[in-house]
Computed example of a mutant assay.
Amino acid sequence: MVTPGRAPIVVGVDPGPSHRRVLAWGADEADRRRVPLRLVHAQGASPAGDRYGHRGGSGLTDDRRGVAEHALLDAAAFVADRHPGLEVSTLLAADDPVPLLRRHARTAAAVVLGSHRLRTREGLFTSASVALPVIADSDCPVVVVRDREQADGSAPHFVVGVDVGMDGRRHSVAAVDHALAEAALHRATVRVLYVWRPPLLGVLDEQAALRESRALLSALVARRRAAHPDVEVRHEVIRGRPAQVLARESAHALGLVVGIRGGPAGVLLGSVVQGVLDRARCPVVAVPRREGRRSPRRRPHAGRAVRRAQRTAVRRVRRLAGFARSWPGTARRGRRSWVRHGGQARRGLAMRRWRRWAGLRW
């Protein structure tokens, strides 16, 4: 869903081939939502500075700062010429791009980035790529604007890639909600697609699997469209590879919306997200599982049953550790008792006593 209030649209300013296109997308979105626009440029650690990023007095550092300031002024002038009444602010920071954008994502409605660094497949897995680390740990949707021209000639629509499996419904719900809200702002339609990929070993009844997928997809869409009944929604199950199919269907679309599972910083994203970032023919909108603000210091609350299970596991591990330390003496005593009293009954009684003491019921 669109973030309520006056949360700004944050645009990462990075001069390059897609510079103007990224600014235009962010400015149009901020004007459409009636929210401020924040232009952010991360200069990174200065080669002439110390380990804490303090700047030195070399001419190279002054030149880099001058280029960055010129880029921000040029971006602000472009936005002011495109939307004269839009509230615009600029920020030049000496931080690295990824942590800076992550901090701004906590209070932003969306973060808009360019994609010229993602041209090659190798660029997706290098430190020079900014989009993937920001998407992996963002509190708001992250938009990656493609650096290729968008084809026209079709009705405005958004494409949403969802997963109807048990592990994919939560982030798929967030993606559908966001797409419906965006379609209402753009007066566009929504195409919800589930790409069914056959298992490696095949399936006994492929038609039955497709029918079940269509039923699950229809139920998912029916529950989410109640908030925007005026938006036209079409859903379809397509057979193939998810990243390839979504990239092909994204042609002529206003945006390709995908959900991300989220997780702690540094978690690798799914192959679908990486694939569509590399192949999509329109802006890609990556929506976190739960949109909204979260405190970076707050730990997730564990339920009572989870805490009880954790305490039980700790007690059993401690008991087994104590038994392991005392096992040599216990084994010698048990062996002497078995020989002296000559019977399995005595040994069986000792084992039952040990299991009861260790808390094991099997």
Score class of each variant (00 low, 15 high):
G322D: 10
A174D: 06
L201V: 14
G240F: 08
R311P: 07
L100F: 06
D74M: 12
R304N: 05
A75L: 07
R315I: 09
A321E: 04
A131S: 07
L185Y: 07
A71D: 09
S46M: 08
V195S: 00
L73S: 12
S129A: 15
R335L: 15
G12P: 03
V284M: 04
R279K: 12
G359L: 03
A209H: 07
G262I: 08
D14E: 09
S46V: 09
R33T: 03
P97M: 03
S154P: 01
L92N: 05
G266K: 00
V273S: 06
G348V: 06
V287M: 02
A175R: 04
P36S: 13
A209Y: 06
V267S: 12
V285R: 03
A109H: 09
H19F: 13
A243K: 12
A93M: 07
A209F: 11
A253Q: 00
R32H: 07
R20P: 09
H157E: 14
V67C: 11
V245K: 04
G275H: 03
A350F: 04
D167A: 14
E122Q: 14
G263M: 08
V192N: 00
L360M: 10
R32L: 10
G56T: 00
V40P: 02
R353E: 15
P17E: 09
P15H: 00
A108D: 04
I238H: 12
A45S: 11
L254I: 08
E212R: 03
Q244C: 10
P4Y: 07
G359Y: 03
A42H: 05
V13A: 08
G342F: 00
V11L: 08
D177C: 06
L193A: 06
R333C: 13
R248M: 13
V190N: 05
S218Y: 08
R355M: 12
A358L: 15
A30W: 02
R355K: 11
M166V: 10
Q43F: 10
L220T: 03
P133E: 03
D139R: 08
L37D: 04
G5E: 02
P288S: 05
A219C: 07
H70Q: 15
R187L: 10
